[in-house]
Design a protein around this nucleic acid. Sequence first.
DNA 1: CCCCAAGTTCTACGTCCTGTAGAATAAAGT
DNA 2: ACTTTATTCTACAGGACGTAGAACTTGGGG
Lengths: 122, 122
Amino acid sequence: MEIIALREAPVALGDLERSVMDLLWDQPGAHTANDVRDALAGDLAVTTVLTVLSRLEKKGLVRRDGGRRPHRYAAASSREDHTVGLLNEVLGSVPDREAVLARFIGGIGPDEAAAVRRLLES
Amino acid sequence: MEIIALREAPVALGDLERSVMDLLWDQPGAHTANDVRDALAGDLAVTTVLTVLSRLEKKGLVRRDGGRRPHRYAAASSREDHTVGLLNEVLGSVPDREAVLARFIGGIGPDEAAAVRRLLES
DNA sequence: CCCCAAGTTCTACGTCCTGTAGAATAAAGT
DNA sequence: ACTTTATTCTACAGGACGTAGAACTTGGGG
């Protein structure tokens, strides 16, 4: 069985893209472009929102249901999974993951350290 | 004592910038622009390298010693520290750090988990 | 069956970042 | 001073994003 390295495109988000994703993550479920526009701060054109949603779809962050007419958009994966992907991407760029983890662990607060310890035990 | 939130600019690196930083990290110490150019793959102009070094300096990733004439360049912080900064930047963009850490910890291999556990004990 | 309104896709443009480097300038050695 | 070496200025192409008008599509109401 061959393992195909699925190229995870460098998923860097712009400010507006980020806002849209935050919205989709905070309010799970399917949204229309108009929904999204109304929920966003500022007074954007719907086409702007649609453009951004398309780009996010191309990046694999948003899934679209184009069944009937007001198309519905939703986050393709949870915010947590997406963020973990980013973390691993960052960690994948260094030769010594553990050295980085060492510094990272050394820098977190005691409460968070406790949480991590708990997670490791289970 | 007031704590000033030092604005960590979104330190996203391009490919060449990344290559230069990897070089400075892998070979610590002060390098001239020509050193860097010779060590890089491809056949770049020195001016290109100097431009990149300047941009990296502006981003705070490189420190320059402009004392005598071939200026010397070196990484401003270790690769590990820089990467930890990136990790925290990513984690700072989510409302629930722990939820992300939970998924992250859940996804690491047993060997790495052991390493983290060891780090937490000390 | 045709038109309208709501919705979607195309096309476009300004801006910023990055890779790339020539031209112009400054300094150092002989 | 003159030549060589190094640095700064200026520039431009390409790509990503924010932004949105123009053009096209489609489901209902006449």
